[in-house]
Design a protein around this nucleic acid. Sequence first.
DNA 1: GTCTATATTCTGATAGAC
DNA 2: GTCTATCAGAATATAGAC
Lengths: 195, 195
Amino acid sequence: MARKQGSHAGITGPKVRDVALRLFARYGYAAVSMRQIAREVGVQAGALYLYTPDKQTLLFDLMRGHLDELLSAWAEADKGGPPAARLEAFARFHMRYHLDRPDTIFIAYMELRNLEPDNFAEVERLRDLYEASLIDILDAGRAEGVFQVPDTRLAAKAAISMLNGVTTWFREGGRLGQGEVESIYWDMLRKSVSG
Amino acid sequence: MARKQGSHAGITGPKVRDVALRLFARYGYAAVSMRQIAREVGVQAGALYLYTPDKQTLLFDLMRGHLDELLSAWAEADKGGPPAARLEAFARFHMRYHLDRPDTIFIAYMELRNLEPDNFAEVERLRDLYEASLIDILDAGRAEGVFQVPDTRLAAKAAISMLNGVTTWFREGGRLGQGEVESIYWDMLRKSVSG
DNA sequence: GTCTATATTCTGATAGAC
DNA sequence: GTCTATCAGAATATAGAC
């Protein structure tokens, strides 16, 4: 028989973040109320404040957590090697990682403006760190003469924008499978930085 | 001496849309209150309802207006000719048009989820119409053998994502001018659809 | 750790005076 | 066409019982 009351140590906290993630992604941070989150978690609104000091921190924690994980996931996935191989690894990693976490990624891009200045600065710093890892690959490839790009910082931005685009429309079970889409996007990216 | 009252026929209506556009872009539709809009327009909250039946319609009108203008602007800018020339025209038109209207574009992409179903369907229809004009160009180029893309629908989505990316970071007065950025992006796009 | 109850402020929208 | 006044409900967050 389901408990309506009592301790759920260690369970409610993550659940609050899971529910907030899903609701923020679906309706937007500003449109979601703490009551709505509480209802889906299965607690009273007041109880949420045991797990987060306020709504803003809840959003910030989701974003920072995402970027921390993204950075360490790429650090692990990056096997080094020649720039062209690293670029392909980056492109495929980026698309897979993002397609596996649609809600997280949606929030990371859409809710930047709802972060308070200090929180925004920290999120931007982490995002720039990730972008820097792509710029490094492009710089290495340009030095070796395998990539022809006039500006690696710009090329990195263009590449990430293109790859991000996948997440806005791709749904499993559509006309093309994820592997096909990945290959087509990678092929376009490869050509775009080649002679 | 400034009037605090009286008729402003034909002025307040557009001003309401201008202010709403700016505030929605800056803080998000859900986070902006009708009172906040009224304050910046310089009227009382109740007076807004003379110009829009409700907040949702205000958002929808901004989006539909934007897409109507985008479609007719491209219809006028499209001079025809060989596919490669049309693609370059499209790319440059798209970047310029979007960089000239940052607030409008921000809303068009970020506030889709805040549209009620019927309004969303109409906005999506107009957006697909715009995307179809790019697919047409890619199809024509592929038929002539000047573009090598395995899937023109996918390539259109990838291209638009990449070009849209410019609007998220470009600011006049930065390291590169708008013309340089346009040329670099166009060059990447050109290569990405070539052999 | 969760509850109920509540303080305080704000929300979208309407009514009716002028 | 704009005003003031107001409705009914919802918002974030806190206090204190258990």
